[in-house]
Structures are given as structure tokens and as C-alpha cells.
Design a protein around this nucleic acid. Sequence first.
DNA 1: TAGATTGTTAATCGATTAACAATC
DNA 2: TAGATTGTTAATCGATTAACAATC
Lengths: 222, 222
Amino acid sequence: MKKEIFNKTYISSEIPSVVLDRMAIYIRVLNQLQQERIKLTNSKELSNYLPVESGQIRKDLNYLGKFGINGKGYNVKILKKTLQKLMGLEAKWNAVIIGGGRLGKSSVEFMKQKKSETFRIVAAFDPNNRLIGKKISNLKIQNMKDLNRTVKSRNIKIGIISTENNNVQSVAENLINNELNYILNFSSFSPKVPDYVILRNIDPGLQVESMSYHLRQSSLSK
Amino acid sequence: MKKEIFNKTYISSEIPSVVLDRMAIYIRVLNQLQQERIKLTNSKELSNYLPVESGQIRKDLNYLGKFGINGKGYNVKILKKTLQKLMGLEAKWNAVIIGGGRLGKSSVEFMKQKKSETFRIVAAFDPNNRLIGKKISNLKIQNMKDLNRTVKSRNIKIGIISTENNNVQSVAENLINNELNYILNFSSFSPKVPDYVILRNIDPGLQVESMSYHLRQSSLSK
DNA sequence: TAGATTGTTAATCGATTAACAATC
DNA sequence: TAGATTGTTAATCGATTAACAATC
């Protein structure tokens, strides 16, 4: 028993993060195929939907062990389920949001529309005392000093930051002090966190800016 | 004159996209330093704010030419301005949004809160005729058949997609047929586009999912 | 000048691609 | 069995890191 758990952990922790990123994308494509009632696919077909070569897809999928069907391809349903299991998408983690202002509200609303259902926001806080008692996403905004109690009682694992940039570092430290080591940051300032903390900065502006670079390039060459 | 433009284009197009991504992040940090009234910085200090080593920062910045001050560091203001210029952030490009439903609205609202000011949305469309005439972000939703005329008359360069997943491929093709080769996609389906098209998929769910993977890992090892 | 930090080269590392034997 | 596609190895490519001479 112990050994199996150990193996799983071992195998999984070997997966490079570029591969994990692609695996999340593969699930999107498999959903698409399922909508089109396709039961069996193969690495060539998958590559049609992605900027990834078929060989690389096969290599990535082999981190899951071998369960492709030689000469046939992959069973869409099984492949999707296996990926979802690996990515922990069967569970739903409790999250707390820090920052109940406009950025907080629009972030929550946006994620809701994107149907991102990996976490469930069960409590809200704000370092600005004037916001306490107001509501965000049907949750009453609480005083930061109650954070620890709520994290414990509600079994919260994820901290979401949506405060002003200048509060972000201290909020992040506060979360970490409360053993929240998984942080989703909607602000534009990336806090410095210890290595063991998993931090994801959600900053689409960065992608728009690299697009801007290409727009300028094309306007220069004209 | 011609030569200078040629050189600029040449130098810039050599910049690997990983480096461009980091450059956008460097601008964020420089903004932060400016807020703290810091006039001079160096690669070591910058690395404190980033998951990037000082040597790599220096290497990245050298794509801009050499204008660091040996023994001193970099002038914050000049460095920021140079990066912004390279990234084309002085210009503001006109954009059209296709998809005036809830995803469209919350995407626009979210980007507004994130103060992403690289583009300006000047027109809205929806393939669903029932939405025509309604409003999104103060813009009347128009009929898709008027897309071409509006793109030309308003000098639109960027197409934003915020429709349902199953419309995304055809909407993308429509945009490209109208010479909109810079596409920002807020849906969860990535359309297949020709190589010359610059496509950015804004899908924060992917980052949440790779976080989920780590949450599962940690719960397994307990 | 001495001290500090840049700019740059060479070495390392890891990820991608190409190719094909194994297998259903 | 023949045909097709997987799983996997070896070769290539590119990005990161380490190290230091150049320079203010």
C-alpha cells in the first residue's frame, strides 16, 4: 500500500511542468472530441488541434504509463479520465479570496464564466477594513484577523489574491503563515514566495503585451 | 533611414518568445521600483523580485543593446522606456470583440480591472443574431456581415473571441479572412490558425489545473 | 585606483524532433 | 498477415547557468 502511494508520487513528481501544461490542454481537446462523438483518436489527430507534434503527444502521454492501443490509437474516454485523475481534477478544493474590491469581483465573475471548477471559494477577506461586511460572490467579507480560524474550520487549501499591487506581498506572506501554500494571484505584482509554495500569476496582460510586440514588428516592416 | 528600420526589425525578430514573455514581466517590476522611488537598479536587485537569475536578466536585457552602466546597474526610467518601446506599448491598437454574451462581458470587465491598455475595443459583433442591437461595454452589437466594413473603416488590427467554444473555429477563420491576424481568444477552445497569425489563448483555468496537480500530489504523500 | 556590476563566452542542462522497432 | 500507430531511443536543438574579462 505504502509502496503504491510512494510510486505514484515518485512517477508523477517526475513530470516536467511544460508537460503538465500541455496535459491540461489535451483535456480541452478531448472534451471537444467527445462533443463530436469521437470515441477513438490517435496522436496524429490530436496534433491537428494543437501546436504540438504527434510524437511529442505520444511522449507526453507515456508519463501516464502505456495504455494506447498499438495500431489503433487512444480511447478518448479513458484517456480523458486518466489525465483528469492525474491532474487531480476529480477533487474540488476549498479556496479563500483576499480582496473584495472590483478586481476581486471581476476575477471571480470571469473564472465563473470560464467554468473553472477546480476550486470552490468558501470565504472572503479584505485588508481594507472599510470593505468588511460587504459581499462578494454571496460571501460576506471578513476581517483578516479571522483568517486563521476560517482556514482551519473550512479546510481551505487555496488562497486567491485580488488586492491592489502594493498589498500583495504582505497578503501572500499572511496566506503562507496560515499554511496556504497554493496561491492564485490576480494582481499584477508577483510576490516573492518560498520554493515550496505553488504560485500561479493570472496576468493575461502579459500575453497581450507579447502580441503588441508582434504588432509593432509588422507595422515597422511596412 | 531604411537601413535603420531594417536593423530594428532584424534585431527584434531574433528575440525568442520566452525572452519576450520575461520582458513583459520586467516592465511590471520596473513599475514597482518606480513606485518605490528607486532610480537605479541592477540585475541582482531585479532578480529578487523574480524567479529569474541575475545573469539571465542581463542576457535578456542585452537584446536591447548595451545600455547598462558598468559597475552601477540600470537606470530604471530609461530601461522601462526602452522595454516599452520594444514591446510596442506606446501604441494603442484598435480591437473588435466577437461574442457579446456573458463570457464577453466578464472578459472585458476583467481586462479593464487589470488595466491592460494595449488595445481599445471599438466595435462588437456576435454570430448569434438575437444579440444584435444589445450592448457590451457601451458598444452596440453588430451583425457579422458588417465585420469587413467596420474593420476597414475603424482601422482594426486585433480580433477578440469570446463566443461559445463550438463557434470559435469559424469565428477565427472569419477574422483571418478579414485580415485580422492578431487574435485574443477568451474561449476554452484553441482554433487552428495559419502560422502567420499571432494567437493568444487567455485560459487561466489551465494554470489552475496545473496547480490542482500539485495539490493532489501533496494529498497523496500524506 | 579599487570595487562593483555589466556584457559575453563556454559548459551544461533539458526539451524537442526524427526515426524506427515493437505490437495490436 | 499486412497495415497502422504506439512506445522509445538517439540526435538535435535551444535555453539556462556558471564564470569571468571588460569597463565604468
